[in-house]
């Protein structure tokens, strides 16, 4: 479980960083999206990974981490997802504006020299 999650975070993060460093704006926004997926999974994993453990207190079961998973990282991820989605959407608009103004999708707004 941990190994799979770590691999997924690693691959997503690595791909994200590589794409962010690319010269095309579309690649950058894909990179930022992958990076935010990696970060969200990473936050999620920081509350320790359990299967079959609910984050909500049930009557009759003692309220400790033996019987439940930590609910806080899940709520953090929820907030981070919303914020990440909004800022990515905003970045997309700026990307389109830059494309329109510069006539190229290079991040510096200049045509690439061959």
């Amino acid at each position: 479980m941990e190994a799979v999650l770590a691999l997924v975070v690693g691959v997503l993060g690595g791909a994200g960083v590589w794409l962010v460093l690319r010269p095309r704006t579309f690649q950058v926004i894909m990179g930022l999206t992958l990076l935010s997926y990696a970060v969200n999974l990473f936050i999620f994993s920081m509350g320790s990974i359990f299967t079959d453990k609910p984050p909500l207190v049930k009557p009759g079961v003692p309220a400790d981490l033996e019987h439940y998973t930590d609910p806080l990282p899940q709520s953090l991820v929820l907030t981070a997802v919303v914020i990440g989605f909004a800022t990515t959407a905003l970045f997309l608009v700026v990307l389109l504006a830059a494309r329109g103004l510069n006539g190229t999708d290079h991040v510096d707004g200049t045509k690439e020299e061959q």
Binding site: V20, V39, F42, T87
Partner: peptide, 26 residues
């Protein structure tokens, strides 16, 4: 728009770093 594109991209990456650091500390 050109400098804004860089500004936003840099800050979005910085926000990712913020979240990673924060969750490790948590």
């Amino acid at each position: 728009v050109r400098s804004g594109l860089h500004y936003i991209a840099v800050n979005l990456v910085a926000s990712s770093l913020f979240l990673i650091g924060l969750s490790v500390l948590y």
